[in-house]
Design a protein around this nucleic acid. Structure first.
Lengths: 249, 249
DNA sequence: GAAAATATTGCAGAAAACCGCAAAACTAAT
DNA sequence: ATTAGTTTTGCGGTTTTCTGCAATATTTTC
């Protein structure tokens, strides 16, 4: 591993987790702690991070900007993202929707992963763009300011022409009886197209949204393959979903 | 193996894997490491890659490491942006390209302006997205990590179906004799399509790029309507351009 | 305040970069 | 084809960079 490469990895980790420990970096990258320390020092001199005893902190950590735009239930979403990442293999074509959970997924992708990501979500695209080994396909159309994703006929027809290996969707509501439901007409159409196109559909959702219902129906339970939440798979809440044939993780 | 051939191979490898090692290239191509090193140095000078101890990295990788790099000549670009903003009227459809100058323009848009912006540049889109009164149309396609804009056949055909009132383009080089020139094949195609589609084409460029030439031609002077730089319009440098019928500001 | 963890410093071996030079390959023109 | 001139390449020797180790100092933690 090249020196610059290693330093890039460190910066990535700092930006991702807001802190890193010299000791863990040392075992992760398999170099001596001295080397890590020298790297941290250099990066600190360049202003890329803040060196502290035992490791380093990100600039954002001290900034006034960061704590303000805190995402609701972010820790849970990080857990979900970590589970979801494991499903992605090198070379895959992955279609992703929008939402804060998907953004966490985008941030959690390991640097070594090389795959193609297709999305109309601007925040997700920005994350993918910063990843060294990921190809990005942008789905164009009119940008919805609320959801920060592109919506419309163009986006729909583009999605219909794809056959991705995997599709990750953040959802609003899921219920045993009513299936997956949402509250935005255009978003629903987009999600339906994505579900139909993908070989395998994986839903990401915090457990709070499980067993809730919204006015517009997206699809039935049988249309999806997998559900990832922050909870353990054998939590009783999931029993009916597992019985309905969904792979819960 | 010819020198050019070898260098093309190296660039290909860098774009593919985001990193190359001098040692492995040396055994692969079967030339001495010195030769590889000289190649890497030349390619680095041409901006095709970034040379580091032990090999080279792609630009895409390097961006990860240095996301906070400051924009070259930013103050001048702000001056340019301020001039450009004045051309945009409420209700207009505006097509914009990529580059740091365009990003400054996006940042300089007054809050009261309500218009529709069309672009494939992710940094620009992010700025437009945060603006309260601007509609955004995203041009989708494969995202180029170098230029951070979408490039490809889809993007081209989408642009061809548009007729925007105004098109803002950041440029690489402009010269009285050779017109507007650039150094990226795909980007040139995109710019040509944008110029052809728009009712009015406005170039944004720092004066440093005026009277310089690049290998690939975009268009002739007569194809554009306006040139905005940070200098005053009656600077002698612009005399030939004004005589060629371009509105310099 | 003592023990544990982390930093600093100097050093040495290995790898890589640099420099100058001469052989080899390629160009261009006789 | 030959020759003169330029470019490219490989090699030996030197310098620089990188990294791990060990000895020493400093900070943290209980």
């Amino acid at each position: 591993m090249l020196k610059k490469e290693r330093q890039a990895y460190i910066v990535h980790q700092v930006n991702l987790h807001n802190k890193v420990l010299s000791a863990s970096l040392s075992t992760e990258i398999d170099v001596s702690e001295d080397t890590i320390r020298r790297d941290l020092q250099e990066l600190a001199e360049e202003g890329k991070l803040i060196k502290v005893h035992g490791g380093a902190l990100s600039h954002a950590f001290n900034d006034i900007t960061y704590p303000s735009k805190k995402v609701y239930s972010q820790d849970n979403k990080k857990i979900i993202a970590a589970k979801a990442v494991k499903l992605i293999k090198d070379g895959m074509f992955v279609l992703t929707g929008g939402g804060t959970t998907i953004n966490e997924l985008a941030r959690a992708l390991p640097v070594s992963l090389s795959a193609t990501f297709i999305s109309g979500s601007i925040p997700a695209i920005v994350e993918y763009m910063h990843h060294p080994n990921i190809e990005v396909i942008v789905i164009g159309d009119k940008l919805s300011k609320n959801s920060k994703i592109t919506l419309g006929a163009d986006a729909l027809s583009r999605i219909k022409s794809l056959k991705p290996d995997l599709c990750f969707l953040g959802i609003n509501s899921i219920d045993v009886k009513h299936g997956i439901t949402d509250n935005d007409w255009d978003v629903v159409h987009l999600k339906q197209a994505m579900i139909k196109a993908a070989k395998k559909v994986v839903l990401l959702s915090i457990s709070e949204k499980v067993n809730s219902v919204q006015p517009i129906k997206v699809c039935d339970l049988c249309d999806i393959d997998m559900l990832i939440t922050e909870l353990d798979a054998n939590d009783p809440i999931f029993k009916p979903y597992i019985e309905a044939g969904i792979n819960v993780t």
